[in-house]
Write a protein that binds this DNA or RNA. Structure first.
Lengths: 223, 223
DNA sequence: CAGGATTATATTGTGTAAGGAGGTTTTTAT
DNA sequence: ATAAAAACCTCCTTACACAATATAATCCTG
C-alpha cells in the first residue's frame, strides 16, 4: 500500500487560491482602501470564473478586509484610527493572555523555538531590512501563541492581526525604536523561560502599547 | 431533519438568509455535530439554488461552525471539550476586558440599559423558562460589550460565543446555580455603575469560571 | 461457498458558462 | 437642472463538465 499524500498536499480549492491572492493584495496595499472589487474584473484578471471569486469575497467579508454594499458590490475596507485602536486594544489583551498561558504551558521544544525566534529577530533588526523585521516580529509572537496551546486564541489572533497588518510596516520603519524592540523581546523571552508570568505580561503590554503609539502616530500623520 | 423555513421579512441577500437559517439550525442542535451539509439537499430544502447555499457555507466555515473536507463537502463542526475550554479561556479574557472598558466608558444611556438588563435577567430567572434565561443572560453581557465602545471586541466576541452557544443551555439548566448567577450579575452591575473596574473584573472572571465549570461538567457527563 | 480484492456505478463537490431580474450609477436629452 | 434612458453590476438561477469519493456489484481465490 503506497502513500499518495503528495496529491493531497498540492490540492487547494480555487476559492482558497483566489482568497489568498486577494488578501495578500489588500494587505500589501495593492488594492487601495475604498477601491471596488468587481467580480468579472477580478475573474478575468485571475483567469478564473466568477464563482470562486464570489466565494473568496464572502470570506474576505467575514475577515473584515472588504465591506459589502448591498447591490453595489464589494470594496476594500477602510480602516479608521478608531478601528485600529480598537483592534490593538483587543490585541493587547490577547497577547497578555497568550504570554501568561505560554508561561504555564511551554515545553522544551517551545523553549527552543522561542530562543531561536528571539535570536532570529535580532538578526533581522541588524539586517535593517523591513520585510525581514516584520516577518521576524511576526514569527516571534507566533511562537508565543503556539506555546499557549490554545487553538482558539491562535485562530482569533491570526484573524485579528490581518486588520492591522496593513499598517504593520509603519512601526518597523521607525528605526529609533529598534533597540527598544529587541530589548523588549529579550525581556519577554527571559520571563517566559523563567515562567515569570507577571513580568512577562507586564513587558508584553508595554511592548504592544509602544507599538500602538508608533502605529497611530504614523497613521494620523499620514492622513 | 426538521423543517428549515426561511423568513423573508425584510430584504437581505439570499445568502445571508440561508447563512442565518443554517447557523440557527446548527446552534440549536437541529443539525448534529458531524452531520453532512450537502449543497443540493439544502438548496432543495430551502427552495433556493446552490449558489447562495455555497456562499453561506463559506461563511459558516470561517465562523468555525462547519468544517470542510476536501472534495467531500461540509459537515457540522464537532466541538471537543478542549475546544470548549480554549474558547472559554479566551472568552474570560474578553469579558474581563469588556467589563474594564465598560467601567471607563459607560454613559448614562448605557447605565440605564445595564440596570434594565440586570432586572430583566432576574425576571427571566424567576420565570424558570430556559430560553428566556439564556436570552436574558445574553442580553446582559451584550449591554456590557456595547458599553465598552470597542467594535472589534464586540465583533470578535459575537463570533466566539457562537462556538459555545450550542452548549449554552447546559449551565442554565442547572437550577442550583440560579441564585449565584443573579448575585454575580448584581455585583457586576453595581461595580460598573460605581466604575470600580478591579472589582468588576474580579467578579466577572469568577462568573465566567463558574459557567465554565458547569458547562464542562455537563458536557463531559454527556459523553 | 465464503470472503476479500477489484471494478463499475452513483453520488457529490468543484468550477465554468450563460443569462435574467432588479437594483444603481452614469449618460443623454429635454 | 431635471428627468428619462442607457449602461452597468450584483445576485441568483440554471445547466453542464469533470474529478474524487462512496457504494454496490463482480470476480477471483482458497
Amino acid at each position: 500500500m503506497k502513500k499518495l499524500s503528495l496529491k493531497l498536499d498540492e490540492y487547494l480549492p480555487l476559492r482558497e487560491v483566489v482568497f489568498n491572492a486577494l488578501r495578500q493584495a489588500i494587505i500589501e496595499g495593492e488594492f487601495q482602501p475604498g477601491e471596488r472589487l468587481m467580480e468579472v474584473t477580478l475573474a478575468n484578471k485571475l483567469g478564473v470564473s466568477r464563482t470562486p471569486v464570489r466565494e473568496a469575497i464572502r470570506m474576505l467579508e467575514l475577515e473584515g478586509l472588504v465591506v459589502m454594499i448591498p447591490r453595489r458590490g464589494a470594496e476594500v475596507a477602510k480602516i479608521t484610527v478608531k478601528d485600529l485602536k480598537d483592534a490593538l486594544e483587543v490585541r493587547m489583551a490577547m497577547e497578555a493572555l497568550s504570554v501568561r498561558l505560554a508561561c504555564e504551558r511551554i515545553d522544551d521544544k517551545g523553549k527552543e523555538e522561542l530562543k531561536a525566534a528571539c535570536i532570529n529577530f535580532k538578526e533581522a533588526i541588524n539586517s535593517k531590512l523591513v520585510p525581514a523585521i516584520v516577518e521576524g516580529d511576526e514569527a516571534f509572537h507566533n511562537v508565543i501563541y503556539k506555546a499557549s496551546k490554545n487553538n482558539k486564541l491562535i485562530n482569533i489572533t491570526q484573524n485579528l492581526r490581518e486588520q492591522v497588518y496593513r499598517y504593520r510596516v509603519e512601526y518597523v520603519k521607525d528605526f529609533l525604536y529598534h533597540d527598544n524592540l529587541v530589548r523588549e523581546h529579550d525581556l519577554i523571552t527571559m520571563a517566559i523561560l523563567k515562567k515569570d508570568a507577571d513580568t512577562a505580561e507586564k513587558i508584553m503590554k508595554e511592548h504592544i502599547y509602544n507599538q500602538e503609539q508608533i502605529v497611530i502616530k504614523n497613521v494620523t500623520n499620514a492622513e
